[in-house]
Design a protein around this nucleic acid. Sequence first.
DNA 1: GTCTATAGGAAGATAGAC
DNA 2: GTCTATCTTCCTATAGAC
Lengths: 200, 200
Amino acid sequence: MTDSEKVRSPRAKAGGKRRLLTAAAARVLHEQGVERTTIADIARAAGVPAGNVYYYFKTKDELVEAALAEHAGHLRELTDELDRLPDPRDRLKGLVGAWVSRRDTAARYGCPTGTLAAELDKRDDGGLDLAAGQVVRLLLDWVAGQYRELGDADPEGRALTLVGAYQGMSLLSNALRDPQIMAREGARLIRELDGGPGMT
Amino acid sequence: MTDSEKVRSPRAKAGGKRRLLTAAAARVLHEQGVERTTIADIARAAGVPAGNVYYYFKTKDELVEAALAEHAGHLRELTDELDRLPDPRDRLKGLVGAWVSRRDTAARYGCPTGTLAAELDKRDDGGLDLAAGQVVRLLLDWVAGQYRELGDADPEGRALTLVGAYQGMSLLSNALRDPQIMAREGARLIRELDGGPGMT
DNA sequence: GTCTATAGGAAGATAGAC
DNA sequence: GTCTATCTTCCTATAGAC
């Protein structure tokens, strides 16, 4: 099948390096932000020569898009894992637990998706800002689904409150460089999920 | 007093343009973000020739610092206003009301202090990242003071939750470009402040 | 004090050798 | 497919005329 080899797109062909670059982009863009990160930074982190990057990604924006998709993938992995739990309430508690377990990263660099969305929303150019919103939507929809299963009267509203609380505690924890904030607020969220008042 | 005129620092002397530049910086940096904003952008917004900026601010970072101080000033004006209300609960409700009233700006550009803090926290260079945290602290402390007056058992914790909710709803509203989120979550916060459950 | 012109440097993107 | 060298553009900051 040497012929089909030739037909493969570069995307599929160079799986190794492309995936390496995507993973590096996701990490470095989260740590340094989009604007302060150069193509060279990402190439170095991936162990790939700087100029070579353009064989896999035509522009820097394409790298950002790939990083965004990578974060969406991580989120998907987590929710797939949680979906194995029989009780929706346990799933939500598991989600909060996952957030708290990443408190040190959050305190240093914020929520990957949240900070990326905030930065991309400052640009009016083509569509990337909305792509960040899509990833946030993914999380909101999954959370709303759990509340719906629980028979809550306003699942979308609940989801906004829970995800909002997460984004807020991530930002505060980051601004004040204090992981404890994640632990403290996370504990409060768990308590509320554990049949606290206001829970239908 | 022509002698004292000569003694004034440039900072005091050129009050007009410096203040113009500071106000423009606060606005433009919020809308475009720090990294995407050029000195020329700020100069244009202030109606001042680009090269002239460096007479008032030695570096771009000094402009960012001034913008941060401007936001802190706005916050101070708001809390001073609210402090005139006799009931701490009304003060907190007034704060939430102020947030909601700025929902359109939040949906387009996020919370000025929050987005600035998130962006500055991506840099390890000199101290500006911590300055953003200071402004957030200001707000947290004022809110905690109100809860303390109300006799709450955990004023700092309450403050983290309330300010966190604000930062979270600002970010979500921004990411999804939906001002309604601010209105919806704001109404919830008011409801909770109005003697909802969980309020000591 | 005010402004213009420009130095100096960095980063995205491309051309083309291998 | 892989990598080097470089082109182009843009931005911060400065030098110096007025």
